[in-house]
């Protein structure tokens, strides 16, 4: 698990690295700024539903595989 926001856990960084993408490459594919990807991975920003869906589609996985409510 990466660094998590208090309202949302994420493993975006692990998933991104596992398929060999840089933050820059993911940001281009998901049509969002690299800073947004970095902020989500660092748990300082909770993405909107649309952005979460875009990222999960780019990484070919389900949204729940990337983001979970903290236990």
């Amino acid at each position: 698990m990466g660094k998590n926001h208090k309202k949302l856990s994420n493993n975006l960084e692990e998933r991104r690295k596992s398929i060999g993408l840089t933050q820059q490459e993911l940001s281009v594919k998901a049509e969002v700024s690299r800073k947004s990807i970095n902020a989500i991975e660092n748990g300082v920003y909770v993405p909107s539903t649309v952005l979460a869906l875009k990222i999960s589609k780019t990484l070919s996985c389900k949204v729940e595989d990337l983001f979970q409510l903290p236990e």
């Binding site: 049509e31 969002v32 700024s33 800073k35 947004s36 902020a39 993405p47 909107s48 952005l51």
Partner: peptide, 8 residues
């Protein structure tokens, strides 16, 4: 034109 983080 900004993305959602920039807008926020």
């Amino acid at each position: 034109h900004y993305d959602e983080l920039e807008r926020k």
